[in-house]
Design a protein around this nucleic acid. Structure first.
Lengths: 244, 244
DNA sequence: CGTCGAGTTGACATAATTCAAGTAAGGTGG
DNA sequence: CCACCTTACTTGAATTATGTCAACTCGACG
């Protein structure tokens, strides 16, 4: 119906040719809606599908034996989620709708013509995969080597910068619908300690909160505290093949 | 000179055609040697190159403002390292030789003909990138949600399973040349605490140590303790394009 | 033979967790 | 529209895992 979300995202990095847009649009022929809280795909289930997020937020997570949960990544409109399906037969993580979402599911087989006929798109997807990998290594350093306060701050900064990729005029206030328990599962902390850190950030004038909105004050200074680097500013697409 | 290390690795997933082997071999035309401890590439340097590891071990790391270090990943023969160069102009992490190494550097521009003429190889590289991403998410869960002992155990298990991809007959004893400080930087712990956890693992009969060799006893049970999953067993290459 | 890096160990400090209790806010059925 | 219930958030006190500091051992190496 409306334009492709994924194509829109890709066009932030490269102008696409009509043929390329067509190929991308084919990934978004179907659309399904899920309610807030729905587990769209469960860890260890057979997983043949990937999803383009058309609207709403999601997150991916794994459960550990002791029942604790690690949230691996938040996902926003324009993101492709469930990409581990491309590498494995069974899902390595679970996918949940954090808000009501609209998803465009497509079979991993749909990737084949993309690689065959659209080398530039394939290469761009590879570039994006590498950027996401780097983003994960940043999180790794955050969990491994920074304080609780820094981790929470980094999560907020990362979220805002990723929202800006699609909406550059977003300012520094945004809707942040995670519970403190979810923030804890994302940062490797307990909900109680997240609470204390959030209030500390407020008291120190780094952030403001109301309802489930957050405002970041002096992002520069906060980034310092959080040891945060914005990786989303620019991708290097100089080496990509010519358009098809 | 000798056969391509990277091709050999890829053939563990798929038999390659002669043309494909040729294309891969082109990435390994040059070879450079580095001594144990050499920083091959430094974070924030301009980075045009990727490397195939022909022999030896490396690791990638980032430094934080307070001087602490997070080791992001160990790298073994057959691995391609510095892949973040494909996405960014400047290096996002540093690369060090953990042992004496032989590397085959290639310019990121060399990826272009791969995507243009060898869609199946491109797709396979995408699959591998996804598998590495999943491996990173496992580490994330390890750092975020498991105990110090579990993290150390998981590092050992992960190392052994990755060595097995290239040498399946390796048994359960292997050379592990990391200092306890390096183990700490990989697991988000201090060297002192790594020491205590290693001895605990020995006392509990999970591992044995001598020189810088480690033996894992009853991997099954250790994997339980570490909350570890072996992801390297099988990749799903069923969706890949036909060979070129 | 002395120096240096790595490993080991103990005593102490601290960040984060756990437990417990309470408040506020939103949703639902009567 | 109110009473109730549930879920999230808040706060304090006690506990614990891990970090810090400091000293010592050992083997390798020049």
């Amino acid at each position: 119906m409306s334009g492709s979300c994924f194509a829109e995202r890709l066009e932030h990095y490269l102008p696409l040719t009509p043929k390329e847009k067509d190929a991308i649009a084919r990934l978004e022929e179907q659309e399904r809606s899920y309610r807030r809280g729905t587990v769209v795909r469960r860890e260890n289930d057979r997983a043949q599908e990937l999803f383009v997020i058309r609207s709403g937020w999601m997150y991916s997570y794994v459960l550990l034996d002791d029942g604790s949960r690690q949230i691996l990544r938040l996902h926003f409109p324009g993101d492709v989620v469930g990409t581990s399906s491309a590498a494995f037969v069974d899902a390595s993580d679970s996918l949940v709708a954090l808000t009501d979402v609209k998803l465009c599911p497509f079979d991993k087989l749909a990737l084949r013509p993309l690689f065959e006929h659209h080398p530039r798109l394939a290469a761009l997807m590879f570039v994006i995969a590498q950027a996401e990998r780097v983003s994960l290594t940043d999180r790794l350093a955050s969990l491994g080597r920074t304080s609780a306060k820094a981790r929470v701050a980094a999560l907020l900064l990362d979220t805002l910068d990723r929202l800006r990729v699609m909406k550059s005029d977003i300012g520094s206030t945004f809707h942040f619908p995670l519970t403190q328990e979810e923030i804890g599962d994302a940062t490797g902390l307990t909900a109680v300690h997240v609470n204390r850190m959030m209030r500390a950030l407020v008291e120190e004038g780094h952030i403001e909160r109301s309802n489930s909105h957050v405002t970041l004050i002096e992002e520069q200074r906060l980034a310092q505290v959080a040891n945060y680097i914005n990786r989303y500013a620019a991708l290097d697409t100089s080496w990509l093949p010519a358009a098809s």
